[in-house]
Every structure is written in C-alpha cells, then in structure tokens.
Nucleic acid binder design. Structure first.
Length: 891
DNA sequence: GACTCCACGTA
DNA sequence: CGTACGTGGAGTCA
C-alpha cells in the first residue's frame, strides 16, 4: 500500500528539509481513513523483509522482473514504522517471508479467534483468503479508492469462488511476480476449466482430454503451472512474535504523533489522525465525567480563607484578559490546586471576576499575587504579568511557567499551546468537565450571567488553571532530565519580568518625522517606478516576482538567474549580478524601487504601531527561536535598518522620551567570535582577543603570514567574512560566492585559516561529533537543542542539522549571556534606585533610556553587568554610545 | 480569509 | 552550497 502511495502521489510532497513524504503521507492517510471508516479493534501492519524469500529459493526468477526499490521509497519505510509506533500499531516482518504471508497467518488466527477480518493489500494473491468472515480491501486506483472484495465480489469478477483464485492465477500467470502463465489462457478460460474440473488438481488429471490450442499449451507448461500454484499459496502458519490479542488498538502515543507530525510536517493529516485516536474518546469521557475540576463557588469575602488553607501550595493560575503591551487588561483570574490531591482526583479551583469582586477578595487576591513566597504556576508568565499590570496587580512568586518549560525541553517546536501540551503530556483533552446534572454548554451559556461559576468561560479558565498545575508536575521531571531547571528558574522566569517592563515601557517615536519620512520614501518609490516603466515601455507590478520574471527573461531576454520553485530568482544579489552583466538601466531603477519600497513599508509599519502614549511597544517572544534568542514582533524592532544611510534615517525616529535625558546603547563587540575562542580554546584566537588588536587584522596577519600593519582592507574583509561564516557552517563554495572569488581560492583560504587556528577546526568537528553521539548541542549555560537529523540517511537533512549543530552553541551562548546581562542590568538599576530603564534588546545590544543625571551611572551599570555576565577565557568587550536618537546613540 | 512563496531587514 | 528570526506583497485556493 505504501508503494502504491509512492507512485500515486507526486514526489513534490516534501518537507522543508528535503525529505520526500509521498509514501508515508499516502500510507498514513489511507490508514487514517481505515481507522475512521472500519473502526477496527485490532490492527497490524506487515512489511516485506527483503528480496530473498522462500519463493525465490524455489524459483529464482520470482519477482525477478522488478526494478530495484527506489531509494526515495526505501527511505520512507522507517518513517512509516515511526508513524505506526506513534499509533501503537505493531509492525511485523520476517526475513524470508513476504508481507502477504504474515497477513495470511494473521487472517487465519483472527478467524480462529472468531474475529471478522479485513485485509488491505495490493497483492491479488490475498484474494485466496477471502471468506464470509474475511474481506479484502483492494486498491482500485491510487490508495484511497478501495474495493471491498467479498466472496460474492470475487465470484462476480473472476467467475470462481475465492479459494479457487490461486488455481486460476496459476494458469493465467502473474506478471507482477514474474510467474509465466499458459499461453492463450486468460482469466475466462482458466475459470471455465477450474470450474469444470473442480479445481486445478482435477484439471491437471484430465489435461489430456482437453482440446484446442490453449490445451496444447497447457500440456506443455504443466510443470510451470504446478510451480505457480505452489508459489502463490500464502503461508498461514508463519511464526510471529505477537498473538492476535496483542494487536488490540491501545490508543495513540499522542506526544509521539505530534513529534512525528512535526518532522514530517503533517498539517491537516495530523488533525485527521488525532481525530481517529481510539483513546481520545476515553479522555473526553473522563472530562465529561466532571472529574477534572471542582469549581468552588465562594461567597464574597471567602477568598482569603480559601487561599490561607492552601498557603505554601503551588497553585495553578490562569488570567483571562488582553496582553497588549501598554494597553493590557485582566478580566478574570482562576486559581487551582492541582488534580490528584483530593479523593476524587479533581482539581479544586476558584474563579475571581475582577469586575465585581468583593473588596476583601480583591485585597486577598492582590496580596497573594504579589507575594513572592506564594508559589504559582502559569502558562505564559509574561502575558499574565501584562494583564494583571493593566489592573495594577503585581505578579510575583511565579515558580514555574509551563510554556517556558516546554520551550526549554523542545526548543525546535513551533508553538506551545496549552491544549496541545495537555494532550501530549497528560494524555487528556483540555475540555470543560460538565458539572453534575448540566446538559451541555448551551444550558451553561443561558444560565445567570452574573454568577461566574455558571459561565462556561469561567469553567474553561478553571480547567486551564488545573491543567497548568498538573502540567507543571509532568514537565518538572522532563526539565530536570535535560538539566534545564536552573535555566528556567534563574534565567527565563526572572527575565519575563524584565521583558514585561521593557514592553510596557516601549520606545518613544517621532511621529512627525516618520510621517515626513514616509512621504519622502513614497515619492522616491513613485519616481523609481516611473523611470523603470519608461525604460521598458509599459507598467508592471514591480513588486511581483512573477511579473518581473516576464520582463527580465522574456521581454528583455536577460540571462537566467538561479532557479527557484516558481522560475528564476529576482533577488537583489541576482539583479546586481545581471546589472553588471547587461548594464540595463531597468535594473538600476528596479533595485532602487526595491530599496525604497522596503524602507517605506518599514516606516508605514512603525507609524501604525505607535501607541496613544506616543511610544512603540514591541513584544519580545521568548519561546520562538530554537537557539535561545529572543525575537521581536508587532512590530519587529530587531530588524530596523542600519547598513545604508537611507535606512539609518529610520533610526532617527526612535527618540529619547519626554522627561528623560538621553538614549544609551551598549553592545557586545564580536561576541560570537569570542564565544568561539572560548569554546574552542584555540590559543591563537584567544591571544587575538587578549592582545587588544583589531580581531580581523590580527587573524588576517596570521592567515596571510604578514605583519598586522600589512593587512590590506581587502584581506581584512575576506577574513571577516570567513570568521563569521565558520560559525554558520559556511562551505568553501558559499565563501567563494560571497567574496566573488573562485572556489579553489576560497578553499585554500579556509585551509590556511585552519592551519593557523587548528583549535577552531577541532572544536567545530568535535561539536558535531558530540551532538551526533548525545543527540543534542548545549550552550555554556546548558541550554540544549536536540538535532535528531544528525543521524538522518538523507544527506540534505543531515548536513542542515550539522550546520545547526555548529551554530546553536555559539548563537545560543550569546543569547544566554545577554539574558544574564539583562537580569544584572535590571537588578542594578533597581537596587541603585535609578529611574533609567531598559527599552530594547537586539541580540547583542541593549538600549536604555536614561533619566536626567543618571548618564554615568547607567553607563556604569551597562558596562559592568554586560561585561561580567559570564566568565570566559577572553574578555567580553562592551561599547557604549549615547544620543538623543537610536541613530545617534549607535556607534 | 487562510495559506504559501518570495524578498529582505536585523544579529 | 551560512545560522536565527518577522513582515509585507503577490499569488493561489477554497
């Protein structure tokens, strides 16, 4: 069936890392439909074990006409087995035996056990197994269109009962098995003979009585026919490691289903798959039983006592509201003691409606939330912090964050949705357990609006709070297994508060200036477009790569660029290249148009993001980057232009705010190279940093074997490109492209580099080897990234994973360091009573808004805390700049 | 409207 | 055939 899927589906079904998935996708899809439509109680999947079987021993040419199994298919077989493992469906195979023999054996045993049996196979030999209790689902077309072959259907199609089918096949032959049939004998003749003589044996006994050409041919190939009959008989007594009872569907390993769906990039198929999980129903039923949450309806004023009764217990906390930095609000708070404590196994929860809580309860809640000694578990502490801050409620004492914990355990995952984590780690669905007597959500919705305990949304909040508390227990162990408990407690969790403050503060924007900038960029866009249209004599959408391809490669017949999925690339590097080759003025205007369009859209985005307070509040994502970096969204303030003068104009729009003295920026110089020096222990590189000499000049003098003063700017830039490239797994080819030099020259440059800095080479090869052995890379603070693809059979996937393994410890350690520094900076600003405040982080840079008179103190805090974040074998160099705008504060 | 692809900005 | 991100526009599909 997998093989059929392989041919039925296009090989363009491929993951982003290049793994073709048509066979595994098609197979899984078919299996999903079977599970859904047939509702089997027991399932197994049989595999062929190899080309050599007992049949090839009896007839060397058996299946000898088959081409070698395509590599692209073969590579997917282990993936199919992974899927099956996740579904807890046994895979069976045996050396020397074919899959259909295993199916025949299982059919035999199942029938003996009184079961009804369904066989799904593309091999017609399986027809012989069909009985009143056994149906063959035979693929008609592709893999989704299955015909139910019952005894009646076999009879109708072949004119014989199923048990006679092998007799017929022996006479007709089987092309796909390379079994020759009797010349001139097709299914019609064969069926007639088999019926007339009551089977093949009867026929062969009376072979001399038959008349005609076909009969003559039969007499000449009796031996082959007998052999065919022996070979096409399926074995029904293969020794198997499992009994049929052991094939009972156990329910999916949902975590594994998610994991394998992640790697295979199953989207809709993942959902279809999870929807047919036989265990899901059980989970939902449990929830319906109402054992998940016991939502206590407190009388006004009772919250303090409820909390006091649970003093010291870690409670789950769920805040409902909106977490828009600078405009956040909280509406409702749910608190829960974890399930499993009470006799019923249900979590106990209370819900506080912030809009109309009794003053006593409000005070009790505020005190508990702000109490650092009252431990809390949250899913997404930063959001909760924002929402509560919107109500002037302080949040402290968060001892666990299930979102951050899941991120630290599985940093490569796309998201950490609470419902998904609950399913993965608790084997439950995040559904509202219905209270005793209630008929459903509709009744709940129609209940008294004023009582939060009757509101389904309140119950949902309570369920989340319980789930978070339970999840914390499950994830605590996993976190400890990965040695990441310290990272959570000492780094990521305290950082949420720092980030929350930064986001809430925002950075002041000069709206008038931005508006004027937008006007200028917009007019430059129009000019560039007009000139471009003029050159080619027509108007096209310059923002459409598709239309540009027509202009460049059809109308102007320019040389083709690098191929991409949708034709040929029109990216800036290629356009520049084309311009050098053709000197065509259209390209000049097009490139200018691109630049200025981009700038305009950046400015537009910023203008849209300015909040009523005149500041831009980004959101720092703490659980996105697999290396441990932060990312910035809505808007992204980590990719504001800096390289070109035009772009730098945008940085002037970020200003020191009213009532503050100046902006201060502090960045680490060459932090990644310093980490490389530290991790590799390469003495040359360490000396380079200790010498205080310009790094690239120093390295250049060693590689080119000249005095540092002799290093030309050209040499220096080559060295710089290579040094940074090394941390990304740059190849000689990549280097040659970047520097526009021959690959051979790039290769010898790299060779020379590694001769001088052997420690770097040893480190880089060592880090990949170690990651392959352990399965993960680690940063200096022990942040892990798991890279299962390091042992992939697929070269593209493997090499991609190798480059990730090279980069992750370096980029990730830099991320660790600046996070530690941020905690230190915040702590020092607070303890010294300074009003200056952190605004932004851009991977190796911090931006601070300085309160009047604190210029020197703030700079001291930045230099000290950033410089002392960790102890490396090389100094951490920090450079600081000040100015009224981000541009002027830069350096 | 949801999604993918391309292109491009940052470190 | 260099890692890590986020965004906006074009194009496509249901």
């Amino acid at each position: 069936m997998a093989y059929r899927a392989f041919f039925a589906l296009p090989d363009t079904l491929v993951t982003s890392s290049g793994q073709v998935t048509n066979a595994v996708y098609g197979f899984t899809s078919m299996l999903t439909n079977l599970l859904r439509d047939e509702q089997p109680t027991h399932v197994a999947v049989a595999f062929d074990a190899g080309r050599v079987t007992f049949r090839t021993e009896q007839f060397a040419e058996y299946k000898g006409n088959r081409d070698a199994t395509p590599e692209v298919f073969r590579g997917q077989v282990p993936l199919i087995k992974e899927v099956l493992e996740a579904l807890r469906i046994p895979s069976l195979q045996r050396e020397g035996i074919e899959a259909d023999d295993i199916l025949a054996t299982l059919t035999q045993r199942g029938t003996e056990a009184g079961m009804e049996v369904l066989i799904c196979s593309g091999d017609r030999d399986a027809l012989q197994l069909v009985t009143d209790d056994v149906t063959l689902l035979y693929p008609k077309r592709g893999v989704s269109d299955l015909v139910r072959m019952t005894p009646g259907a076999v009879e109708e199609k072949y004119g014989i009962p199923p048990e006679r089918y092998p007799d017929l096949a022996a006479l007709v032959g089987e092309t796909s098995d390379n079994l020759p049939g009797v010349a001139g004998v097709g299914p019609k003749t064969a069926a007639k003979w088999v019926t007339a003589y009551d089977g093949l044996d009867g026929l062969l006994e009376h072979v001399d009585e038959l008349k005609g050409k076909a009969a003559q041919n039969l007499r000449e190939s009796v031996d082959q026919v007998r052999l065919n009959r022996v070979l096409n008989a399926l074995l029904r007594d293969v020794e198997l490691p499992l009994t049929v009872e052991e094939l009972a569907l156990a329910g999916f390993d949902r975590e594994a289903v998610h994991r394998v769906s992640d790697t295979l990039q199953f989207g809709a198929l993942r959902d279809r798959l999870l929807a047919v999980d036989p265990s899901a129903e059980a989970a939902v039923e449990t929830a319906k039983g109402g054992v998940e949450v016991d939502l206590v309806a407190l009388e006004p004023g009772e919250l303090a006592a409820w909390l006091a009764a649970r003093a010291g217990t870690r409670l789950g906390l769920d805040v409902t509201g909106t977490a828009t930095p600078g405009a956040s609000d909280a509406w409702e708070v749910a608190l829960a003691a974890p399930a499993g404590n009470g006799a019923t196994g249900a979590g106990t929860a209370v819900v506080v409606d912030l809009a109309d809580a009794a003053p006593d309860d409000e005070r009790a809640l505020a005190a508990w939330l702000a109490d650092p000694g009252a431990p809390k578990v949250v899913h997404g502490a930063k959001s909760a912090w924002h929402m509560l801050a919107g109500r002037d409620l302080e949040l402290a004492g968060v001892s666990f964050d299930t979102e951050l914990a899941a991120y630290l355990c599985y940093p490569d995952q796309r998201g950490y949705d609470l419902a998904d984590l609950v399913v993965r780690h608790l084997g439950r669905e995040l559904t509202v357990g219905e209270p005793e007597g209630a008929q459903g959500a509709l009744d709940l919705a129609m209940a008294d609006d004023d009582d939060p305990h009757e509101d389904p949304r309140s119950r949902q909040a309570a369920v989340r709070a319980v789930a978070v508390a339970d999840l914390a227990t499950a994830l605590t162990g996993q976190l400890a297994d990965r040695g990441a408990d310290g990272l959570l407690t000492d780094l990521e969790l305290p950082l949420t508060g720092v980030l929350g403050r930064m986001e809430a503060t925002g950075i002041a924007a000069d709206v008038e200036y931005l508006t004027e900038l937008e006007r200028q960029f917009a007019s430059a866009v129009a000019d560039a477009a007009a000139e471009a249209y003029d050159v080619i004599g027509r108007q096209v959408n310059l923002g459409s790569p598709k239309q540009l391809q027509e202009v460049l490669f059809d109308q102007l017949a320019m040389p083709k660029t690098k191929k991409i999925k949708t034709g040929y690339t029109t990216d800036a590097a290629s356009l520049q290249d084309l311009y050098v080759k053709t000197g065509h003025p259209f390209l000049e205007h097009l490139l200018a148009h691109r630049d200025v369009t981009r700038l305009r859209s950046t400015v537009e985005g910023l203008l849209k993001s300015v909040a009523p307070d005149g500041r831009i509040h980004t959101t720092f994502q703490q659980t996105i980057a697999a290396t441990g970096r932060l990312s910035s969204t809505d808007p992204n303030l980590q990719n504001i232009p800096i390289r070109t003068e035009e772009g730098r104009r945008i940085r002037r729009a970020f200003r020191v705010g009213e009532g503050y003295e100046t902006l201060l920026t502090a960045d680490y110089s060459q932090i990644e190279m310093r980490i490389m020096a530290h991790l590799s222990g390469d003495e040359g590189l360490i000396d380079a940093f200790r010498s205080g000499e310009d790094l690239h000049r120093y390295v250049g003098s060693r590689v080119f074997d000249v005095a540092p003063s002799e290093v030309t700017p050209e040499m220096r830039s080559k060295i710089k490109a290579m040094s940074y490239g090394l941390a990304y797994g740059l190849s000689a080819f990549g280097l040659s492209q970047q520097l526009t030099i021959p690959t051979s020259e790039a290769q010898s440059l790299m060779d020379d580099y590694f001769t001088r800095f052997g420690g770097v080479r040893d480190y880089l090869t060592g880090v990949v080897e170690e990651a392959r052995a352990t399965g993960y890379t680690a940063t200096i603070l022990g942040r892990r990234r798991y890279l299962p693809d390091l042992t992939s059979d697929n070269r593209q996937r493997r090499q991609m994973a190798e480059r990730m393994a090279l980069n992750a410890p370096i980029q990730g350690s830099a991320a660790d360091i600046i996070k530690v520094a941020m905690l230190g900076v915040q702590r020092e600003l607070d303890s010294r009573g300074l009003a200056s405040r952190l605004l932004l982080q851009v991977h190796d840079e911090l931006v601070v808004e300085v309160s009047p008179g604190e210029r020197e103190a703030a700079e001291d805090v930045l230099r000290t805390q950033m410089g002392a974040a960790v102890e490396l074998d090389v100094p951490l160099d920090v450079s600081v700049g000040a100015g009224a705008t981000w541009h002027d504060a830069g350096h």
